[in-house]
């Protein structure tokens, strides 16, 4: 993986004719199908240092998370909707700067798949 851009990921682009075939899905419609036991007291995910995210050029967490936990606020800060997390670990291994504090939810909390 090249480090040319300062990111651990080398950004690539899909061909335009492929790109335009991608729909824009509203992830909340999918989240409604999931069951969670939400821990209101402890956030098991958090950004370690927002300044690192600010410097991160491509911010891949905004894309690869399968449930859209990470969004960028109007103030530019990365917001973390830990309540939607399905605990897959993509952000844990995929953050180019290891800037996400990732723990398992406390026992009994988090996603509870009904089908799996």
């Amino acid at each position: 993986m090249a480090m040319k851009t300062g990111d651990a990921f080398e950004a690539k682009e899909l061909a335009e004719e492929v790109k335009k075939t991608l729909p824009n899905v509203y992830v909340d419609d999918l989240l409604m199908s999931l069951k969670y036991f939400i821990d209101e007291d402890v956030a098991h995910l958090s950004i370690i240092d927002q300044a690192v995210c600010h410097r991160c050029e491509h911010k891949p967490c905004l894309y690869f998370c399968p449930v859209g936990v990470y969004t960028q606020g109007n103030d530019g800060r990365i917001q973390v909707a830990y309540q939607s997390c399905v605990e897959c670990g993509s952000c844990r291994v995929g953050c180019p700067y290891k800037n996400i504090h990732w723990e398992l939810p406390r026992g009994g909390f988090g996603v509870a798949y009904k089908f799996g």
């Binding site: 950004a11 991608l22 999918l30 891949p60 894309y63 399968p66 993509s90 995929g94």
Partner: peptide, 15 residues
């Protein structure tokens, strides 16, 4: 996962 990151693709869009 590196492919999703490099191309900045959302899983649910691809699905």
């Amino acid at each position: 996962l590196d492919t999703l990151a490099e191309y900045r693709l959302r899983p649910y869009d691809i699905l």
